[in-house]
Simulated scan of single mutants.
Amino acid sequence: MKQNILIVAEEFEPHTDILLGYLRSLGHNPIRLHTADFPLNASVEINFDGQYWHGYLQTKKRRIFLEEIRSIWWRRPGAYVVSSELPQDQKRFVREELDHALKGVWYSLDCYWMSFPPSIRLASNKPRQLKQAAELGLRVPQTLITMDPDQAQAFFEACNESIIYKTLVNPQPNSDVPKSIYATPITKDHMTFFEQVRTTPCLFQEYIPKQVELRVTVIGDEVFTAEIHSQENERTKYDWRHYEVPTRIQKHTLPVDIAEKCIHLTKNYGLNFSTSDLILTPEGEYVFLETNPNGQWLWVEEAVPELKMKEALAECLIRGANG
């Protein structure tokens, strides 16, 4: 019988802590799996007997039978930690073998996912997000991704010298790059910057004036939207993620067609969860910026308790289906 709810997350992850507590308060016994426990403190076994596929994941606390997993929340898996005594080439071999074995588990499970890892990876690509959103009828900013300084200069001039620079990916933890690189307005003072465009692809977008910014969270078949009053402070004008600046946040009701397009964008990627950033312009037009297929939602619910995302997420995992 499929009864287990599995949450794959790092050891210290606030969203997971909150949801585990809530599920337990409802009488459920969700399982937290920390992938960094593999292979030193956890193991995997898969058995094909010629007809049936079965197996288990073994941790220090319990054995998780694969055929009993009803739903999985793929929250924040940690990197595998292998023995420090192994030579570097053997460490790489162990990680690759372990990764293939566990992917064999994940890719073979017949259960509900929030969300399936390959779908999360595909949906993380920003250029494809913009293309998909535009095809669904959402307005997206004029965008240029280039390594040509002349093209960057021409785009700057075509957008009335009002553009922003954004990274294509978020820097990984423990890298030499700052963890957060904010959306940066480009002005005439940055003209020498365009020469650096030759070193790597750079993403530029037209700057779009904002009335408010919107965080749209899709959970199953439900949409939860918060409006972020970023224009009330100069430091959050271009990027509201300056968390040290107090910013007013409240509930927002999307037009039905915009909400449906956000759901369709999520479903088109095979996701059951996503967080998207949109702009509401002073003229009342909605503009899509980007999607995070595994984004944070707890800070929104804490700021706007009436957006009951924890309950919606738990309901999907309990049912093993979208609500």
Rank of each mutant, 00 (worst) to 15 (best):
V216K: 02
E161K: 13
L122I: 04
Y112S: 06
F193G: 10
T236N: 08
T275N: 11
Y56L: 06
S43L: 01
N272I: 01
H242A: 12
L130Y: 05
N272R: 06
F194Q: 05
W240F: 15
E11D: 14
E306F: 00
M147T: 15
F116T: 02
N292H: 01
L317N: 03
P118V: 02
T184C: 07
C159E: 13
R70C: 08
V256K: 14
G220N: 00
K60N: 14
E302L: 11
R63Q: 12
K60G: 14
V44L: 15
C159M: 14
P173G: 08
E222R: 12
I31P: 11
P118A: 03
H264A: 15
V140R: 04
S162Q: 15
P293D: 10
P87Q: 11
M309V: 11
F224C: 05
E283P: 06
T35W: 01
E206T: 08
E13C: 09
S108H: 13
A42R: 10
L278R: 02
V81H: 07
E315D: 15
W299K: 04
G21Q: 05
N294R: 05
H15W: 05
L20R: 05
L144A: 05
P185E: 04
G323P: 15
A42G: 13
F38Y: 10
L265P: 13
F194K: 00
Q3Y: 03
P305W: 01
K251D: 03
R63D: 00
D110T: 01
R241N: 12
N47H: 14
R215H: 02
H252P: 01
E161W: 01
K91E: 12
P171M: 00
N29W: 09
E135P: 04
